[in-house]
């Protein structure tokens, strides 16, 4: 009989009671979506790692602050929503502080470029990615948050809404606007020499 995976609440309670393994399971469970969200705003992998680490530390501190309530109740702990909300905020600050990201991760091109057509395809993909990144940077903050949670963290709209404390309809609406705006921006950037907009 397969054993059910422990809930985030169980893991938080176990970790705060001193279970080192529970910490590892929680980090392992969400490190990829958190890293992906902050990666869009970080200029280097190290910076993204630092932001991811900070997001987890702040989320664990939030769990620690609500410790008495956590122990008293068997209720669910929105750890995923906490850590992603923090990641989005850290990413937003990073973008606001004027950090700029490189056009494309070079390793991505090298890994896939085993033949000339593939190399060209990878280059086009990298260019398209770079243009999209620039366009995402120009989105209004809320649209950017929704976009990143939906695309980078891969969350369904209901969870995007939970993380941001908005309705699901609202999340969908922001995403629609974001995509349409991105399309216009990318078209404008592609038409501009060097891909630089105003």
């Amino acid at each position: 009989m397969p054993t059910e995976a422990p809930s985030d609440g169980d893991l938080c309670r176990a970790f705060l009671a001193g279970d080192r393994q529970a910490f590892g399971v929680l980090v392992g469970r969400y490190q990829l979506p958190v890293f992906a969200v902050v990666r869009r705003f970080a200029s280097t992998p190290e910076e993204a790692k630092d932001l991811t680490q900070r997001a987890f530390l702040q989320a664990f501190e939030a769990a620690q602050r609500t410790l008495p309530k956590l122990i008293a109740t068997a209720g669910e702990v929105p750890f995923k929503a906490w850590v992603l909300r923090i990641a989005v905020n850290l990413g937003k600050n990073q973008a606001r502080d004027g950090a700029r990201w490189p056009l494309a991760p070079v390793e991505t091109i090298d890994e896939t470029a085993s033949s000339r057509p593939q190399a060209l395809e990878a280059l086009e993909k990298a260019e398209a990615e770079a243009l999209t990144r620039k366009a995402v940077e120009r989105l209004p903050p809320r649209q950017r948050e929704v976009f990143s949670l939906r695309i980078d963290a891969g969350l369904p709209f209901a969870e995007v809404a939970e993380v941001l404390g908005i309705s699901e309809g609202n999340a969908k609406s922001h995403f629609h606007y974001a995509v349409k705006r991105l399309r216009d921006e990318v078209r404008a950037l592609s038409a501009t020499p060097g891909g630089e907009g105003p």
Partner: peptide, 22 residues
């Protein structure tokens, strides 16, 4: 437009040590 940010080998290396460092 909706392709997620692709993670490079360096990104994956950073992730590999994330849990222990955190």
């Amino acid at each position: 437009l909706t392709a997620p940010v692709s993670l490079s080998a360096a990104d994956r290396a950073a992730l590999a040590s994330l849990e222990a460092d955190t």
